[in-house]
């Protein structure tokens, strides 16, 4: 891994309490072609192994916006699922504000929320109904939640009539804004954003990005942002981990990463140049390959 800066040196000077997320040699391997029933009777073959997360190790400081950059299929979403307690690591550990995601799952769940690339909702329910469901799950007072839902959605540019109409009638961009409101409603101290702006128009994308900054600045939240949008990562993130084939190949501030590949021929490199240099291919090619 290329790194000019250790996580705890820059983020977490005050000890473990300043470390929002600590991923320590976490690995996750998926095996396909081993049906459950065959495994029960001991007749399953070895199957096909896919190493999604391969001994990843990094720490994220409190109030940091930490980018995880890499093409589809390199383990970004698996890592987010590990942090969100939706997957258990095969080895290593993941700790959120010092709490292990497996042993202290209930505590971790109170600290986090997530926005994924797909704004997953009950399609026939309205944003208000969906968000009230989320608010109750996170023990937000219903009366308080109703007011906050209207306030956040209005702030995000969702018109008042849409708040009461089925989600299926809304555009994808609008649905994604409701997804952001859902995450924001529970006031998470660690917000996991898994490609939140994919498929959004430039205007909506900027609004979401502004919101991410606000979540950090006004609410002291730490943000983990998975993306394959280089510009987004460059503009938003304090530090970026470049991930390839389940491993972190570089981790540093955007400026330091770009400095790694700066040369006379390339005096003002971009993150795309960094990615190309470190992985041997462009991120766009990789995304196309996966389609």
């Amino acid at each position: 891994m290329v790194s000019t800066q250790t996580p705890t040196a820059a983020w977490g000077q005050n000890g473990p309490l300043d470390v929002a997320l600590d991923v320590d040699s976490a690995s996750k391997v998926f095996t396909s072609g081993r049906p459950f029933l065959k495994r029960l009777v001991g007749r399953a073959g070895p199957g096909k192994r896919v190493v999604a997360v391969d001994k990843m190790a990094f720490s994220v400081g409190k109030r940091e916006i930490f980018g995880i950059l890499g093409p589809n299929g390199t383990g970004k979403s698996t890592l987010i699922r590990l942090i969100s307690t939706l997957l258990t690591p095969d080895s290593g550990s993941v700790r959120v504000f010092g709490h292990d995601v497996v042993a202290e799952e209930a505590v971790v769940k109170r600290l986090i929320n997530r926005v994924s690339v797909e704004p997953s909702f009950f399609k026939k329910l309205s944003p208000m109904e969906n968000l009230m469901y989320g608010a109750r799950l996170y023990s937000v007072e219903p009366a308080l939640a109703r007011g906050r839902i209207i306030e956040i959605l209005t702030r995000l540019g969702v018109d008042s009539r849409s708040i009461w109409s089925p989600m299926e009638d809304m555009s994808r961009g609008m649905q994604q804004k409701v997804a952001i409101a859902r995450a924001f409603l529970s006031s998470p101290v660690l917000l996991l954003l898994d490609e939140p702006t994919t498929g959004l128009d430039p205007h909506s994308r900027r609004e979401v990005q502004a919101f991410v900054r606000e979540i950090r600045d006004a609410h002291d939240a730490t943000v983990i942002l998975c993306t394959h949008d280089m510009n987004e990562a460059d503009q938003l993130c304090d530090r970026i981990a470049i991930v390839d084939h389940g491993r972190i190949v570089a981790l540093d501030t955007p400026a330091a990463l770009k400095a790694l590949v700066r040369s006379d021929e390339r005096p003002t490199p971009t993150l795309e140049d960094v990615f190309l240099e470190l992985t041997g291919r462009s991120i766009e090619e990789d995304i196309e390959d996966k389609k």
């Binding site: 969100s84 939706l86 209930a106 769940k109 997530r114 997953s120 799950l137």
Partner: peptide, 14 residues
């Protein structure tokens, strides 16, 4: 079917 399973399972409810 609705696609909400991950959100419900990561919510802090037993």
């Amino acid at each position: 079917w609705e696609g909400t399973i991950e959100y419900t399972f990561m919510a802090p409810v037993g």
